[in-house]
Design a protein around this nucleic acid. Sequence first.
DNA 1: CTGAAAGCGCTAACAC
DNA 2: GTGTTAGCGCTTTCAG
Lengths: 334, 334
Amino acid sequence: MATISDVASLAGVSTATVSRALNGKSTVDPELAARVLAAARELGYQPNGPARNLRRQEAAVIALIISDVENPFFTAIARGVEDVAHAVGYSVVLCNADENADKERRYVDVAIQERVAGVIMSPTPTATNVDLLINRGTPLVAVDRPLPERPSDTVLVDTRLAAREATEHLMTQGYQRIGCVTGPSGVRTADDRLAGYRDALRAARMKSSPRLVRRTEFKAAGANRAAQDLLAQPEPPDALLVANSAMAIGVLAALNEASRRPGRDVGVVAFDDVPWAELVDPPLTVVAQPAYEIGTVAAQLLLARIADNTRAATTTTLGARLIERESSHRGDLP
Amino acid sequence: MATISDVASLAGVSTATVSRALNGKSTVDPELAARVLAAARELGYQPNGPARNLRRQEAAVIALIISDVENPFFTAIARGVEDVAHAVGYSVVLCNADENADKERRYVDVAIQERVAGVIMSPTPTATNVDLLINRGTPLVAVDRPLPERPSDTVLVDTRLAAREATEHLMTQGYQRIGCVTGPSGVRTADDRLAGYRDALRAARMKSSPRLVRRTEFKAAGANRAAQDLLAQPEPPDALLVANSAMAIGVLAALNEASRRPGRDVGVVAFDDVPWAELVDPPLTVVAQPAYEIGTVAAQLLLARIADNTRAATTTTLGARLIERESSHRGDLP
DNA sequence: CTGAAAGCGCTAACAC
DNA sequence: GTGTTAGCGCTTTCAG
């Protein structure tokens, strides 16, 4: 593997000049620069990242720590981050914390150790370890959920309002006993969606019963059990607000098994628009979150903070959009 | 940020001892080791990754370059790789090449520059740049598709056989004019699925017509147009083999729009089992690929090669499994 | 505008 | 079993 000194001797200049020429930093005689470039090409020179990062005390890398690689919501965020970061020469490494505090901690450690330029993360409720990041002064932006107890740049969706609107939509459609299947207590989005649901019931002076609410991890299996449980009650819900797309799969499966048709028998609205929402029967009403935009905004915020870490922390809240399809329409009554 | 010498002075030992104690390398007096650990904890010491990697000439990081983060097939591979790699202390960075040769090249450069311990990738048809990797001797394993023209450890699925079996299944169900919607020419999986489809037709002495085959990128939009096009023909297909799950979405949407019911009107089998396959109406027959296992096997192969780069290149071929659901059953004829 | 040289933090000979 | 020290490859003063 060729080093900068190999290039220097081939080009007949010093290593300092090679470095300057390759980085386009201070001005270098065009003729020398051309010689350097030619020599570098000839040797197939590839800069040594660790050496550069050691010297610079920082890598041109952004770590993106997300809660679940298999959730399209987070992969869409990833694309947004990548597009913005690549445009200005940063690489993005995607780390899958898997809603698991240990893995999260591990990746935060890696980010610190590799001296990445900044971190974007959707924190677990405990967000262990981020203090290390903060103390070190590593630029950090939280997405989807705020960092517990610590100020930071944050990009959120007004998910409480969106949940309220979705619930009100179900009321408008004539559903009377609306239930809610949401994520674990402590996860802000799960809590907010439940709060929005309750806001709507309260505003309509409908009774809010704990028997209509289930909390489980943000996965299909948990939501499936929750929905079965809900439907097996003496007074089952006639509509359900579901907190993400993986859960929607579990809920719709439970409805199928119980021979309850979405819309006609049980109204369903789920968070996150997914490509298959229009294909299920009946098509699924969803709350579409601007995931890609969350990513682009977060990346811009991070880049701004990398440039100037004294900025005050900001919180950006984006709106969500209800997309009505058949699963929340009762259809013609007999 | 505390360094190893800070820890050394606090513990009253040399930096070498700190390094040894922290890495558990050669034996260190237990009492000294304890002092070192205590000092490190007290100072909140975090090793400097770039310095370590520079010295070691290698980072304990595996780069995983996949073709599409939004494709569940690839994210499942990622989980397999992660689980194996983490168990032995490697971190995995996920890079999304997006079926794009430029991005792929960029990530390969990053992998080389950062001196990662190894690379796992699903190469684009050109796989530009991997020669750099190979010349440098960086351990490399290809997944899903072989590296064009270069030997390497490879983990594949016998997708040609799977395509043949899926097609034969459609024949058994009584479909007569079976079509195929597959990916771009040059992408091995796309070519193989088409070849398997043709194998089946040939074995059954059925005519294979180019009018029944469409090639497009592995996305919903392209497949949607392809399916519309296919259905608009004078003699449209009465069954379709579809090469991945994103394409299946496009195809099913086209069928809906044309009011053709999967199964009854047009038999459908798609590659990749996805969580929503059972929810669409009728449930989708799929070819389930062992994606997670591809990841675990690839990671094991890579680790073996990191340990011993003189091993001969191997190719592991895993089987796929047809999961029959209603979309490939004609149902009761009138 | 260019070169010499220091040094980023760590590990691994090598010497004791 | 422990310490001393060279040096990984690069960028960046500092002189000239």
